[in-house]
Amino acid sequence: MADMTDKAGVLERWISQARKGYFEMLLLARLQAGRAYGYQIVASLKQVPGFENLAEGTVYPVLTRMRNDGLVTAEWVAEDSGAPRKYYTTTQFGAEVLAEMKAIWAAMSAALDAQEVTS
């Protein structure tokens, strides 16, 4: 049985698992708002509760996987400063997947609210 005083530990473990679950959805949502490069995406994610201490490098393998899955496209763009940056954009497929993810998220939230009402 979990120690009642270990609420922080239980929550930390749960948040860690939940974060992995909705990481791709957050990335897709960020990119649907407009194309962005890695550092911008990381800066946006760090504003999201639970992602404040995000290890920035973890974003790139996920973006690579999403690109391989056809959810996003990536393009190196030469900036005015001369330093190229890799910009990510959501594909049509990515937008459709995001819409499905949001619907599942809403259904989950509704189910959770319903549990609270009935209990």
Binding site: G38, Y39, E56, G57, Y60, P61, T64, W76, A83, K86
Partner: peptide
């Protein structure tokens, strides 16, 4: 990823 890490 290596190139992106450099820009990051």
């Amino acid at each position: 990823i290596s190139a992106e890490a450099a820009t990051h």
